[in-house]
Computed example of a mutant assay.
Amino acid sequence: MRLVLDAMGGDHAPAAPVEGALLFAREHPAHEVVLVGDLVRLREPLSQAGGLPPNVRLHPASQVVEMEDHAFSAIRRKKDSSLRVGFELVRRGEADALVSAGHSGAVMAGGLLVLGRIPGVERPAIATLLPALEGVGRCLLLDAGANVECRPVHLAQWAVLGAAYVRARLGIPRPRVALLSNGEEPSKGTSLTREASALLRASDLAFTGYVEGKDLFSGDVEVVVTDGFTGNVVLKTSEGVAAAVTGLLRSAIERRGGLPEKLGALLLQPTFTGLKKVMDYAEYGGAPLLGIEGVGIVAHGRSSPRALQKALEAALQTAQAGLRTELTRCIADAAAWLPARQRGKGATAEAFSD
């Protein structure tokens, strides 16, 4: 497999993408990484790394999509940006997947404008894996931030895409699917969730109804669907809670400061290390854009080299799974119960988050 990494994307670019590519290349010598970016700016981190291994190569791009750029206009205007050039490599079949820690809205825009949508999909979604206490230890949340304004059919389509992804990636034959709401009762939620729930009750998915925020990590369901605004808030809140719990434990131990506390902390160090690994976003790699004609992975903006290595591994696994065929089949099968697309109600630049 040949994977493209946007070398100019992310808070720590280009140093973190370069190091992340090298970490991946050493672990996966049978696969190739293409670093796309400004070759002049790549020179220093490459020099510090001691050069390129045989399975990493460079591809030039003279422009960068900045965080303040408008997503769709930047992809249209900056045709030689590292993100646009990377997607073009995937479109031409010169690469199998793209990973970027840059502007997430622009990654979505690039996927739509360069690769296009799977037939029948109105809006692609960002799907992110969260840790869960029971079951397979994972729960897929989508949309995690791409679509601010949604219609019920979008949530229903994401349920189909999410279930197909979990079947392919986690090996669960019939994933349980739920809608995120403010209560489990059918009367709760908004008009959006109630109408989406009516669609999903008529589907052939293993739809369980509503779940609350606390249920994301219980393991009771494998797929949770919501709009991109809510999903992104949930995701960022979860990251903050994970960091806060770790910090509070450390502060409590340091504040007490006695020998018993320090000894207990030492004995529990392996447990704390394991817990941190489970809660660390870097261990989950990037989030795939489900619904585009190809593999695009959105990595965290502040991704470390380790996180980008994991994102490349997620891209590799997604590309190897041959998801496009499965997603296309599932969306086509769902046409029997999904409402037909309404003219003028498809994807527009205003509908997506920047």
Rank of each mutant, 00 (worst) to 15 (best):
H103N: 14
E134I: 00
G51N: 11
S303L: 09
A243T: 10
L35T: 07
P173R: 12
A61Q: 01
R41K: 13
V223Q: 00
S203Q: 10
A61V: 08
A159D: 01
E122Y: 07
A106D: 06
R302W: 00
V34M: 10
V40N: 11
L52K: 07
R123A: 04
A332H: 15
G264E: 10
G137R: 12
S303Y: 05
L259A: 15
V136L: 13
G135A: 15
E350V: 00
D220K: 12
R91T: 01
A315H: 04
L98P: 04
L290A: 07
Q317T: 02
L133A: 15
L338F: 01
L112S: 02
G20H: 01
P60E: 03
T325V: 11
S62D: 12
L83G: 03
L263N: 02
A30N: 11
S238W: 07
H12D: 09
C330R: 15
S100F: 00
L89Y: 07
F272V: 02
G105T: 10
R256E: 14
A311K: 03
V36T: 11
Q309E: 13
L275F: 13
G274T: 04
P45K: 05
L289V: 15
D354P: 00
A282I: 06
P53Y: 08
T230W: 01
G322V: 01
V64T: 09
G183N: 11
H31R: 12
A127I: 11
Y284L: 06
A21L: 04
A74L: 06
V221K: 06
V221L: 03
R167V: 02
R91Q: 14
L235C: 05
G137K: 06
R343C: 00
A156S: 03
E149L: 00
G274N: 06
T193E: 01
A178P: 03
C330V: 05
V85G: 01
P175F: 08
S197M: 08
A252M: 13
I292C: 06
H154L: 11
A336S: 15
E350A: 14
G10E: 02
G344W: 00
A252Q: 13
L249I: 09
A109N: 04
A146Q: 09
A16F: 02
I75F: 00
E66Q: 13
T318C: 13
T230L: 10
G116S: 10
F207C: 09
H12G: 02
V241K: 13
A159T: 05
A196Y: 08
E350M: 02
P339N: 04
R92W: 09
R57C: 13
H12R: 13
S191R: 12
R43N: 07
S81P: 07
L35S: 08
L275T: 03
V153S: 07
D354G: 01
V64I: 13
L112T: 05
A319Q: 06
R76S: 09
Y210P: 08
L83P: 00
K276I: 00
A314G: 06
L23W: 05
G285D: 05
P175W: 14
K79D: 05
V114E: 12
P305F: 03
D96T: 03
G301S: 08
W158P: 05
R167K: 14
T190C: 06
V166P: 03
V99G: 10
S62L: 08
E44S: 11
L199M: 14
